[in-house]
Simulated assay, not measured.
Amino acid sequence: MDHIVELTGIDHVGIGLDLCEELFKYVSPDVLASMPRKPFDVIKGHQNLPKLIEGLMNRGYKDLDIEKILGTNFLRIFK
């Protein structure tokens, strides 16, 4: 997250939690088994979103920045 924020600025960062697992149905079981970790496995489901937020807070992200990452950036672009 920090790297992307550095590259693009906080107003251009967002996360989506709804598609990652769906992508893996297109990857063979052998390829998945050979991966040291699954790509996109930052958090395990929506129930763990508070852990991500806590991590962002611990890294110095302000409430407004976290709100942007969690959705207000998307809303701004969609408008």
Score class of each variant (00 low, 15 high):
Gly45Trp: 09
Glu54His: 10
Asp65Arg: 01
Ile66His: 07
Leu32Trp: 00
Val13Asp: 03
Leu52Asp: 01
Asn73Val: 10
Asp63Thr: 14
Val42Met: 12
Gly60Trp: 01
Phe74Cys: 04
Gly45Ser: 13
Asn48Glu: 15
Gly71Ile: 04
Leu70Gly: 02
Asn48Gln: 15
Asn58Val: 08
Asp11Asn: 10
Thr72Phe: 04
Pro50Met: 10
Pro50Phe: 08
Gly55Trp: 05
Leu70Lys: 02
Phe40Gln: 00
Ser28Met: 02
Lys68Ile: 01
Leu23Met: 02
Leu70Pro: 02
Val5Phe: 01
Asp18Met: 00
Cys20Pro: 03
Phe74Glu: 00
Val27Pro: 06
Leu19Tyr: 03
Gly55Pro: 05
Pro50Glu: 11
Leu19Cys: 06
Asn73Tyr: 05
Glu22Met: 12
Leu7Trp: 13
Ile69Val: 09
Gly60Glu: 05
Pro39Cys: 09
Asp63Gln: 14
His46Val: 12
Ile69Leu: 01
Ile10Thr: 06
Gly45Phe: 09
His46Trp: 10
Gly14Tyr: 02
Asp65Ser: 14
Thr8Gln: 11
Ile66Asn: 09
Asp18Gly: 04
Pro36Leu: 07
Leu7Met: 14
Val13Leu: 06
Cys20Gln: 03
Leu7Asp: 11
Lys79Asp: 09
Pro39His: 06
Gly60Cys: 04
Tyr61Lys: 12
Lys62Pro: 11
Ile10Arg: 04
Val42Cys: 09
Leu49Val: 10
Asp30Met: 05
Val27Asn: 02
Ile53Asp: 02
Leu32Ala: 07
Glu67Gln: 13
Thr8Ile: 12
Arg37Ile: 13
Cys20Phe: 02
Glu21Pro: 00
Ser28Ala: 07
Ile66Gln: 08
Glu21Leu: 12
Leu19Asp: 00
His3Glu: 12
Thr72His: 07
Arg59Tyr: 02
Lys38Tyr: 10
Asp2Arg: 06
Met57Glu: 15
Ser34Val: 08
Val31Asp: 02
